[in-house]
């Protein structure tokens, strides 16, 4: 299945009490099928908005977003999203939160249980199946939210700062898992992060967005720099010491910083 994403002149406005906010303006971009795309940019520039639009939660007033050639019209399990604030159902246990998507999409019970068991082991939460979200730390909740999306085997995996609440160790484990899942299931990944290091480490390409209204400021093709042997196949703590990695990191950081400090 073709899972390429195509953004054609996408605009997004929010009408607020204190006037309208132009979140995105003429956002034009192509993401190839199964690409790992990482988005960075100053906060408030419209990154989350871009992801919500891609998930089909709302329709852009102008422009179109196409997935595999057809316009995205409504949300659905093929466009799973991990929200910045986890958005777990607080009255459901870890098990039931993960099960929800599988159940409403008609996966038979036996298969559900098997997959839930597997994904819970994957996120390292064995023994927490019957805990409620409030009984878990922020990092654990985020892992459940990730698991809830992973099990649906989506065509696009939309992740909004998914590892922000994790400590360094869990972050590294989840990064490795994400790469592994991406390599086996081959979804198109849109990944937002405020860590430039994480972006450079994971991405095929990194988009740097301008400050609001968000547009593409620059695209950095990591695969072109690394060639066949991408950084993400090596351990993170080793990769970040390489001079080449540091060069790219500081170049991207410079681009982001220029968007934060510019005033008019």
């Amino acid at each position: 299945m073709q899972n390429d994403l195509s953004y054609e002149n996408v605009t997004m406005r929010f009408e607020g009490r204190s006037g309208a906010v132009q979140a995105l303006e003429r956002f034009d971009f192509q993401v190839s099928s199964s690409e790992f795309l990482v988005i960075v940019g100053p906060s408030g520039c419209g990154k989350s908005t871009l992801l919500h639009l891609t998930a089909g939660l709302y329709k852009p007033p102008t422009g179109r977003i196409l997935l595999g050639g057809s316009e995205i019209r409504e949300p659905g399990p093929d466009k799973a999203i991990v929200f910045q604030n986890f958005s777990l159902f607080p009255w459901k246990t870890v098990h039931d939160n993960i099960e929800f998507g599988l159940r409403i999409n008609g996966i038979p019970a036996a298969e559900r249980e098997e997959q839930i068991k597997r994904v819970i082991r994957l996120i390292g939460l064995d023994g927490f199946e019957n805990h409620y979200p409030r009984q878990l730390s922020g990092g654990m909740q985020q892992r459940v939210a990730i698991a809830r999306s992973f099990v649906l085997k989506p065509r696009t995996l939309l992740m909004d700062e998914p590892f922000a609440a994790l400590d360094a160790q869990n972050r590294q484990i989840m990064q490795e898992e994400l790469v592994r899942i991406w390599q086996t299931q081959r979804p198109t990944v849109l990944f937002i992060t405020h860590s430039v290091e994480e972006a450079v480490f994971l991405a095929d390409r990194v988009i740097v967005m301008t400050r609001r209204p968000g547009r593409v400021k620059e695209v950095i093709d990591i695969t072109q720099i690394t060639g066949e042997n991408h950084w993400r196949s090596d351990p993170f703590d080793e990769v970040i010491r390489r001079a080449e990695f540091q060069d790219v990191r500081s170049r991207i950081w410079g681009l982001v910083k220029s968007e934060i400090s510019v005033r008019n």
Partner: peptide, 11 residues
């Protein structure tokens, strides 16, 4: 946001 989450899961 919970309703949004449910919608994106296919509800």
């Amino acid at each position: 946001r919970l309703i949004d989450a449910a919608r994106t899961l296919g509800a």
